[in-house]
Amino acid sequence: MSFYSSVSELLRPVTQFKFSSLVNVSQVRNATKRVSGSRTNKNDSAGRRLGPKAYENTFVKPGQIIMRQRGTKIHPGENVGIGIDHTIYALEPGYVKFYYNPFHPYRKYVGISLKKDLDLPTPHFEPRTRRFGYVELTGLDATKEETRMSRKEFLATPKLKALQEEESAFAHKTIEYFKEQLSEYKDTVEDENMGAERLFKIYQLVTVGQPLEQAQIQATFDYLWDLKLAHNGADISTQREKYLNFVEKFDNTVSVDFSNLQDAKLFAYITPQARSAKKQEITNKLETSYSNKVLKASEKSEVMNLIKSPGIFSQKEQTDLTDTFLPKVLPLDVPGSIIEDVDTKKPPKGVVITRVYDAETKTLKVVGRPKEVYSN
């Protein structure tokens, strides 16, 4: 074959390609932009210096840091405190002790032992060692220590004094009020001052939710405890017996209704049997005469007087009876509580126009309701 014929074969157009099944064709894409290094990888924050700052048997002062940590890896033990960042610090001067508590065997604790030869934890049923060795202050140092206060206490002192004077004035006024009431029972009450103070103490306990019987027991305990502290360990058996006799006679002679202190009046003692019978009588009367009906103003006053009968119902029982027989709004099923045929534009006197839900038609309808269905 000549040179021209071989060249013509090469220049002839190709009409069909034949690829072998053994040949794999893949596309490779190369990067078109140079990658730069990250600057954030070059910075590093300083260490937090976590870990123990005082070791076993090291003497520390109050406020000194013992352990800095993240989380309670080491738990606070005796005579130490813990901050919001789990930092453990000393509350008393002493020696650092790391130990395990038998009640929490998987927790490690750190505490302060007031003496170097004492180990922690203190046995469960033994008292903790107290720090003695205080030096008595005298003269100007003692005055400074007695009058020392924080800035927060100093700023709150005027307000606290005003509240204290207000409470003292209220206590004096209340005790005098009870003395006036006790003047009617001079023949049976031996000591009016002691009786008035006892009534005031009971009043304070009742107003915070204690029942009358429990308040009487608490008032007796508080008086005897104050008497014991005042005599500083001396024999008070005579005064104790005298006061208990007075309390037994006083509580079985007179009592007072604390539901409304301004209108509170003393009344003769009512036995539990008589109170239960009177309670049942009043409840029956309320159910038969004042239940499921529209009450007039005079009838509402009668119901309230029955509920507020002195010494019969507790405060909770009075509240429940008031909600039952004197609700804020009477239910719709009470006879006479709905007036359907009423002029909504010019309602009669004593009628309130309102909307109620009709269960049959499942719609709202406008009706009139007497003012007596409302408590106010």
Rank of each mutant, 00 (worst) to 15 (best):
E167Y: 08
L137P: 02
F103Q: 10
E145H: 07
R107L: 05
K144G: 01
K115D: 09
F154G: 15
K173M: 11
E136I: 09
A156I: 03
E176K: 06
D187I: 03
F103W: 10
N193T: 07
A169T: 11
F98V: 04
K115P: 04
K97Y: 02
E167L: 12
E197F: 10
K116N: 09
P127S: 15
L120V: 05
K115A: 15
T122D: 02
T174Y: 05
L182H: 03
F170P: 04
L160A: 09
T122G: 03
G133K: 02
A196D: 01
L137C: 01
G133L: 06
Y99N: 01
A169V: 05
P121L: 11
S168L: 08
Q181F: 00
E184M: 10
G139F: 01
D119A: 13
V135L: 12
P127K: 10
A162N: 14
A156Q: 08
R128N: 11
A171G: 06
P102W: 00
E136W: 05
T174Q: 11
E146M: 09
P121F: 02
Y185N: 00
T188P: 12
S183T: 09
L137T: 04
S183L: 12
R107F: 00
L140D: 04
F170N: 10
E126R: 08
V110T: 01
F170D: 12
E92R: 15
R130E: 15
G195T: 01
L137G: 02
L163A: 15
I112M: 04
K116T: 05
L163E: 15
K173N: 10
K116P: 04
R131W: 09
L114A: 06
P123C: 13
L182E: 04
K161T: 14
F98C: 07
Q164L: 07
F132E: 15
K161Q: 09
V189E: 07
A162I: 13
R131L: 15
R148S: 06
K97W: 00
E197T: 07
D141Y: 07
V135E: 10
K159W: 06
E165R: 15
F170G: 10
E145N: 14
P123S: 11
S183P: 03
N193L: 14
E197K: 14
D191H: 15
K115Y: 06
P158Q: 13
E184G: 10
F178N: 03
E145A: 13
E136C: 09
Y109T: 00
A142W: 06
G139M: 01
D117S: 14
Y177T: 14
E166G: 11
E136M: 07
K159N: 07
S113M: 02
R130C: 12
E167R: 12
E190F: 13
Y95F: 01
T129D: 10
F103M: 12
L137S: 09
E165W: 13
P127H: 15
T129M: 09
R130V: 13
L114D: 01
T147V: 02
I112H: 02
E197R: 12
E197A: 13
F178Y: 08
T143R: 14
L118P: 02
E126I: 04
H104T: 11
D187H: 08
